[in-house]
Amino acid sequence: MLPFVLNRVAQGAVILVLVSFVAFGISVAAPGNAMQTFIDPNVPPEQLRAAEARLGLDQPFYVQYVRWVGEVARGNLGYSFRTGRPVAAFVGSRIGPTFLLMGTAFAVTLVLALWLGTATAARPYSALDYGVTGAAFAGISVPSFFTAMALIYVFALRLGWFPTSGLEDYAAGHTGIALFLDRLRHLVLPVTVLVLTGAAELVRHVRSAVLEELGQDYVRTARSKGVSERAVLRRHALRNSLLPVITLVGVALPRLLAGSVITETVFAWPGMGRLLVESVFARDYPVAMAINMLAAVLVLAGSLLADVLYAAVDPRVRYS
């Protein structure tokens, strides 16, 4: 097992370098640079050019890339072009809110998908099944910005149950338990958006995986032994259907990160996704690159985790 993991980590490192090259190339290839976004009659072009030279933006792509790699290799992620903030601390401060949002959404998605997926598989073509399947299709099809705005309109503006945006009530200055509860209230709507889109897909897969297991011989054996239907579902069918689901969970993490880009923007959530959007529009390469690389690491870690879990869950799988 360990050699397998080490091998995968080594592969991952190579992939990261390739990803960084492509991501950097695409960033720099986008027309315009950080200083060209700044047009002000009081700042003549030669001043802009001096600033470009200071940031190295007057250099060709490969020079900028090699310089960036060199700095990163020495543990220096550089400074944001737009704000001058050290990138590590800047992006670092955004990781917490994003992980809070993603982690909560991930946990809720998983529980909801397993529960509904099993329930619909137990009674296929029932009213519940049609209802969940219909809702799942709606969840997949409706764009998340629309879901987000609809939720804000209904639950924040019309009913007033939840706040529209932000991490907490800034003016109130809550601490302790009150702060925890306040943040929980602020989490509900953005988490709901991510869950509605994320769970919709997962529930379909859980349903079909469980359905497939229910048709297996061992299930018939269990039933004929007199095992209760509940236990058949929970202990036999669901457990065995987890195998394909684990693979999906591995890709669900990066997908959640992608979903957080829009969700964070709509809910003014101070996470990485929103920072990525702002950095791309400002052509703030050091910040955008740091977030891109973090996302790449997440994708690789997610798929490695899925493989390791696979071996742990399925004794037939051996990595040697």
Binding site: M149, I152, A156, T164, S165, D169, Y170, A171, V266, A268
Partner: peptide, 21 residues
């Protein structure tokens, strides 16, 4: 005593205004 300036998308900030935040 204190002034807080938040930043966010146009429509998000409009919603926050309408909801009294």
């Amino acid at each position: 005593d204190r002034l807080i300036v938040r930043f966010g998308d146009q429509n998000t900030m409009l919603a926050a205004l309408l909801s009294g935040e």
